[in-house]
Amino acid sequence: MKIQGKMFMWLSVFLLITAIVYGVWSKEAVGTTALFMAFGLSIMIGFYLGFTARRVDVGAQDNKEADVADDAGELGFFSPHSWQPLGLGIGGALAFLGIAVGWWLVYFAAPIIVISLWGWVFEYYRGENRTQ
């Protein structure tokens, strides 16, 4: 993660210079503010990545002598299939359709969203995916 932190720090330097030059030449407040905000976001991400890289073990991506296979291993836990996101999508679509068509549709969307969200949160506590 060290290289990503350095990349964001260099990007923040570029954005700061660009924001100053743009602000002086254009005298336009919105674009200048957007560039300064992009500078702030970039420096926050760069600081976080650099700070985290100092605290974690050195991975294969930071070792110049490492091969690609050296970083192989367990990548994490990936959920099996789930029907709950489909229910959330249908409920969300109905809710946004309710904004355009009529607020009464939200009354039908809310239970679908709540039931699907409840099922998604607790899907590992019951059924075939139950963890021991």
Results as ranks from 00 to 15, higher is better:
residue 2 K to F: 14
residue 6 K to H: 08
residue 6 K to N: 12
residue 9 M to K: 08
residue 10 W to F: 15
residue 15 L to K: 01
residue 22 Y to N: 11
residue 23 G to H: 07
residue 23 G to N: 04
residue 24 V to N: 05
residue 26 S to E: 09
residue 28 E to Q: 12
residue 35 L to T: 02
residue 36 F to Y: 12
residue 39 F to W: 13
residue 40 G to T: 06
residue 40 G to N: 05
residue 40 G to D: 09
residue 41 L to W: 08
residue 42 S to W: 05
residue 42 S to F: 08
residue 42 S to T: 10
residue 43 I to R: 00
residue 44 M to A: 14
residue 44 M to Y: 05
residue 45 I to S: 04
residue 48 Y to P: 00
residue 50 G to M: 09
residue 52 T to K: 15
residue 54 R to N: 14
residue 54 R to L: 15
residue 59 G to K: 09
residue 61 Q to N: 13
residue 66 A to E: 06
residue 66 A to W: 04
residue 67 D to E: 12
residue 67 D to V: 07
residue 68 V to Y: 09
residue 68 V to Q: 09
residue 69 A to I: 09
residue 74 E to R: 07
residue 75 L to W: 07
residue 75 L to I: 15
residue 79 S to Q: 12
residue 86 L to M: 12
residue 87 G to T: 06
residue 88 L to M: 11
residue 89 G to P: 04
residue 91 G to K: 02
residue 92 G to R: 00
residue 93 A to D: 01
residue 95 A to V: 02
residue 96 F to P: 00
residue 100 A to C: 02
residue 106 V to S: 05
residue 108 F to P: 01
residue 108 F to H: 02
residue 110 A to I: 13
residue 113 I to E: 11
residue 116 S to E: 08
residue 116 S to D: 09
residue 118 W to D: 01
residue 119 G to H: 04
residue 124 Y to E: 09
residue 126 R to S: 13
residue 130 R to G: 00
residue 130 R to Y: 04
residue 131 T to N: 04
residue 132 Q to G: 14
